[in-house]
Write a protein that binds this DNA or RNA. Structure first.
Lengths: 343, 343
DNA sequence: CTGAAAGCGCTTACAG
DNA sequence: CTGAAAGCGCTTACAG
C-alpha cells in the first residue's frame, strides 16, 4: 500500500471565475459584472466573456456568490404540516409545478422544507439566517404562526391560501367564496329545493370560505342554510358526512361538497343509500382533480387552477424581492364551473 | 432627502461563529468541531459551545460552510420530464415525503429541480458544479440520458425506478415484476379464463416490468398472453385501451391494469359496455392510490409503497456519501396485494 | 468602462 | 484536546 505517498489530490474540478477572466482577457470584476447583467460593460468585453463561459462550461459557484454578495439566489418553499395533517398530493404537486414554471430562466434555486410541529425553531433559525431570500409557505393549518414569524423577522414571505392567523402577510388564494357561491346558485337554478353542503375543517380558511360562499348563494335565493356537515379532506370522512346529512334530511336533493376528494366519498354513500345521482341528489364538488372526470357519475365541480396559484405566489415574491412597491396584499384567482353529469 | 447621509447600514444580522466562540470562551476551530460532531473535543468545551449556540440562536451560514469545506450539505432531487410527460402527482408527492422523512435530523438541504428537454446542459453544469453532493433523479422517461451523464461526471446519483438507458447507475424500484405476477396468479386462482392486461408505455421500465410479470404469471399457468393493450397513465387512455381489448375479445373475463389511474378509465368503459365488475370482468390495478378505495367498485390492486421508495433512495445516496462501500447496485421493494371488490 | 484588493463566514491542515 | 492562519470563489466599494 503506497496510498500515503499519493500526491495530494489536486481537487480543482470546476472552472473558476478567474479562468474565465483569463480566457476572455479581462479582470475578474468584469466577468462578475457580465454574469450579473450589470450595465457599464463594453459590448466587446461582454461578448468575450460570454464566449469564454460557453467554451469552458462555466457555472458560478453559488456558495461563493451567496457568501460574498447579499443575496442567496435561493427561495424556500416550506410546507408546514402544523398538526400533522397529511399533505394533499395533487394540490401540492400542482403548486410546485407552477412555482417552477415561474422560476424558469431565473437563476434562483428552490429549496424545499417541511416543518412538523416542534421543529419550528430550527426552521425559523435557518430561514432567517440569510440562507434564502424569501419564502413561499404552504400551510395546512389556518392558525399556523409560521408565516407571521417569518414576516416579522423581515423575510419576504408569501402564503398559499388565506392564512387565518397571519393577518398582514401577503397571500394568494383561489376565490373560494365566489366559486362556492356559483355552485350554490347553480344548484338553485337546477330547481333543487333542499340543498346541503359538506364543508372542510373549521380551522382552515379554504373550508370556511367555501362554506361562506355556499351560504351566501343560498340565502340570496332565500333558502335555508342549515344542512351543513364537516369533513376533513378524505374520501372516508366525506362518506361519513354524507351519511350524517342523509340522516338529518332524508329529503335532501343536492349537496355541494367543498372538495372533490370528499365528494368521492359522498358519492359512495349516496350509492349505498340507493340515491341516484343526479336524479335524486345533485352533487357539485370543488377543485376539479383529475379523478373528478372518472368519478361515477363524472363530477360537476368548481375548478381552481392550482398551478396558477404556484405561479402567482412566485411572481408576487419575486416582485417583492426585485424591490417593486405597492404590491397587492393578496391576490385571488378566479374559479370556473365544469359541468359534467353529477349535477 | 438626507438618505445619502444615513450611516452605512451596519448589516450584521446574524450571529456568527466568532460570537459563539467568544460566548463559549473557546476558539472558532473548536466551535466548528462541535458543530460538525468531530471527536477530540473535551466535553467541557462541547457543552459550553452547545449552550452558547442555544442562547444565541446560532445557525451556521451554509454558504460559508460549502465554500470552505468540500461538501455542499445539499442534495438535489431532479424531476426530469424528458419528453414533457406530465408529472404523476401522487407518486411524486409520496416520494418526496419519503425523501424528507429520511433526511429529517440530518443537516442536509433538499433542492428541487426540474429539467425539460433542451435545458439539460444548464442543469448538468449546475449539478456537476459542486453545488450539490449527490442527486436523486426521478425520470419519467426510460431512455433519459441524464442519470448516466451525472454518474459519469462522478456525482453520486440514485435513480427512482429502473432506468432503461442508464445501466450501472444505482436505482431503487418497486418489485413491479413480482407484483404483476401476483396479480396474474390471483386472477387465475379466481377461475378466470380469458385474462387481459392494459400496460403502460413501452419506453418506461415500470410498464414493461409489470407487463413481464403478468406474462410470466399467466404462462406459468399455461394461459395465453395475447390480450395486451397499451396506455399512457391517464384515465382516458385507460378507457380507450379497455375498449380496444373488449373489441378484440368480447369474452374476456379479467383485466390486470398496470396503474390505478388507468384502471379508473377501464372501469368506465366496462360500465359503458354493460359489463359488471367483478361478475363479468374482474379488475386488478397497481399502485393503490388513495382513490382506489373509492372507485366503483372499490379496486383490488397491488400496493407499492411510494414513500418507502423515497426513503430508500435517500438512504442509498446518503450511505454512498458517507463512504460506505459495496452498496447494492439496486434495491427492489416488495409489493402487496390489497383485495377489495373489483376482483 | 475597468482592475486591484478586501472581505463574506466558515473548514482544514498545521503546529502545539 | 486546542488555536492561529490560510484559503474556499465570488462581489463590491474604491480608485482610476
Amino acid at each position: 500500500m503506497t496510498d500515503a505517498v499519493d500526491p495530494p489530490k489536486a481537487r480543482r474540478p470546476n472552472t473558476r471565475l478567474e479562468e474565465v477572466a483569463r480566457a476572455a482577457g479581462v479582470s475578474k470584476s468584469t466577468v462578475s459584472r457580465v454574469i450579473n447583467g450589470e450595465p457599464y460593460v463594453s459590448s466587446r468585453a461582454r461578448e468575450a466573456v460570454h464566449q469564454a463561459i460557453g467554451r469552458l462550461g462555466y457555472s458560478p459557484n453559488q456558495a461563493a456568490r451567496t457568501l460574498a454578495g447579499s443575496r442567496a439566489n435561493c427561495i424556500a418553499m416550506v410546507v408546514s404540516e402544523h398538526g400533522s395533517r397529511v399533505l394533499n398530493d395533487p394540490f401540492f404537486a400542482g403548486v410546485l409545478r407552477g412555482v417552477h414554471a415561474e422560476l424558469a430562466g431565473k437563476r434562483v434555486q428552490l429549496v424545499l422544507m417541511m416543518s412538523k410541529e416542534g421543529d419550528e425553531q430550527d426552521l425559523v433559525n435557518y430561514l432567517c439566517g440569510g440562507h434564502v431570500d424569501g419564502v413561499l409557505v404552504i400551510s395546512l393549518h389556518g392558525q399556523d404562526p409560521l408565516p407571521r414569524t417569518l414576516a416579522d423577522a423581515g423575510l419576504p414571505t408569501v402564503v398559499c391560501g388565506r392564512p387565518l392567523g397571519a393577518g398582514g402577510v401577503p397571500y394568494v388564494d383561489s376565490d373560494n367564496f365566489n366559486g362556492a357561491m356559483e355552485a350554490a346558485r347553480y344548484l338553485v337554478s337546477l330547481g333543487r329545493k333542499r340543498i346541503s353542503t359538506i364543508a372542510g375543517p373549521r380551522d382552515m380558511a379554504v373550508g370556511m370560505d367555501r362554506l361562506s360562499g355556499w351560504k351566501r348563494g343560498l340565502s340570496q335565493a332565500r333558502f335555508d342554510t342549515d344542512l351543513v356537515a364537516y369533513s376533513d379532506y378524505t374520501p372516508e370522512s366525506g362518506a361519513a358526512a354524507m351519511a350524517d346529512l342523509l340522516k338529518r334530511a332524508p329529503d335532501l336533493d343536492a349537496v355541494f361538497v367543498g372538495a372533490d376528494i370528499m365528494a368521492l366519498g359522498a358519492l359512495q354513500t349516496l350509492h349505498a343509500h340507493g340515491k341516484k345521482v343526479p336524479e335524486d341528489v345533485a352533487v357539485v364538488g370543488f377543485d376539479d382533480l383529475m379523478i373528478a372526470s372518472t368519478a361515477v357519475p363524472p363530477l360537476t365541480t368548481i375548478r381552481q387552477d392550482v398551478e396558477q396559484l404556484g405561479r402567482t405566489m412566485t411572481w408576487r415574491l419575486m416582485a417583492e424581492l426585485a424591490g417593486e412597491e405597492n404590491l397587492p396584499p393578496f391576490l385571488l384567482l378566479p374559479t370556473s364551473m365544469v359541468t359534467r353529469s353529477s349535477a
